[in-house]
Design a protein around this nucleic acid. Sequence first.
DNA 1: CGTTAATTTGAGACCATTCAATTTCGGTGG
DNA 2: CCACCGAAATTGAATGGTCTCAAATTAACG
Lengths: 273, 273
Amino acid sequence: MIVQSTGRLVPPQGKAVEDPNHLLFPLIDKLGSRSLLSALDRSALFSLPYQEGTLQRGDYVTYEGNEVDSCCVLLTGVLSRQKLTGFGAKQILSLHLRGDIIDLQNALVEVADHSVQAVTLAKVVHIRREALLRAADERPAIARALLVDTIVDCSIAREWLLSAGQRNAHQRISHLLCELVVRERDAGLRSEHGWDMPLTQEQLGEATGMTSVHVNRVLQRMRREGFVRLEAQKLVILDWAGLQAAGDFTDTYLHRRIPVALQGICRSGPVGG
Amino acid sequence: MIVQSTGRLVPPQGKAVEDPNHLLFPLIDKLGSRSLLSALDRSALFSLPYQEGTLQRGDYVTYEGNEVDSCCVLLTGVLSRQKLTGFGAKQILSLHLRGDIIDLQNALVEVADHSVQAVTLAKVVHIRREALLRAADERPAIARALLVDTIVDCSIAREWLLSAGQRNAHQRISHLLCELVVRERDAGLRSEHGWDMPLTQEQLGEATGMTSVHVNRVLQRMRREGFVRLEAQKLVILDWAGLQAAGDFTDTYLHRRIPVALQGICRSGPVGG
DNA sequence: CGTTAATTTGAGACCATTCAATTTCGGTGG
DNA sequence: CCACCGAAATTGAATGGTCTCAAATTAACG
């Protein structure tokens, strides 16, 4: 076992009758993993109108500079946020798995500050900004859940910044692999023996701020030293403890638990002004 | 003139009687610059209980790993978010000016994922997490304003990540100076002829992921080429257009305006479930 | 089985670091 | 006002991590 269980809380009020096949389930599951949502909150989320969509590898959901009026929830596959410098250099800013809400951040500002692209074939669901905001306005716990989700997003971005600024190539790659494996586990995608690493070495480079050539050499060293096996897109972690140490990885920044202190002061419905 | 006016909106409902000397004014001014707040929202914010505080240069507000139960609003001075690698290398993650809400992000998770430190002598106001969350629960527009503020925070972190990953030393320093000058202007601190640059070259390095030695050489080149004058902590921008070009800087990511599309669907009070 | 994408390899160049040592600056006490 | 101090800035030389630019090899796919 490479990752300990998340200890995710199931809200006591949670209806057992919720349909786990509902397309919005991954979203509500994710939000509920870090915020307490009452049965009313959850049913309000389940009743959000949405539109299905499929993305081919390489498809863009959003371009930097555009106006965005809906946010998309990822059901299967992997999406990336990215941004270009004025000279055309691309930086992958974050990677997203099942349940992640993408483009909420672009939908609440005037113009998108980053692009969103499919790394693999992906299934998504689009929720109109107005619908989501209305739900948040009517149910404070939903607004808070969106805030907490955004905060965790931001925490991950800060850790990436720490990596880009202060860690060397070997550490950056190891760290990224650790993060992906943990998050992939938490998203409910099992990865007992190996995982379909969706990123090319080129993309690993774009995510860590280095050349694909150098990514290649680093990966070779990691294989030589027995940390991972990586062949035919299949990533097998041979030495989880070693990889964590090599990547200076600890999972604190992923905020995998509901803050205990906040559980008592959660409210679930609108209150009189 | 080096920065154009922000075109900040004054909400039509805004009371003219608000006291601009109220200690929470900078906070409400900042939130109101990117979200529409009604008179009721604003007065709810003004009536938040708070506690004043003074920070000496170098003082820590929060340590990474601690539990945080209040967030602080910066009134004067400069604060930084920062994080250490396991090997002790420090990365400054963001810099904060008047009106910025710091530690909201640490207050809503189990343990702080980063530290907060005073870069200069600073005056702050602490607001207890419970009080702020209650206000957000009771007034959706306040919750949304906090969300938008966090989103902008996150956008800045992404731009820093882009810099760290894809721009060279000269560009990174130029870009950071551009950002600080613009934000400092927007925060209402005029900087007609020069600005008290609060960062040492060491800190400039920690913010851009480079050595103080190299920061020094880059700054010398920038002076030699006539972009800035920087003597005795005083920064004077001699060639704003040139500095922007050298730093690959555009202000989009700062989201300096209220998104027009959201103005129509703002609600100001609680609504029935 | 051909075509394109992805990975791998090599050598040289360069940007940035490291490690000292030196100089300047800002403030303090005599 | 000057001597002194620590912090910050500056300088130099050597090292090294990462990039650049090809070119070659392998894998993926219809």
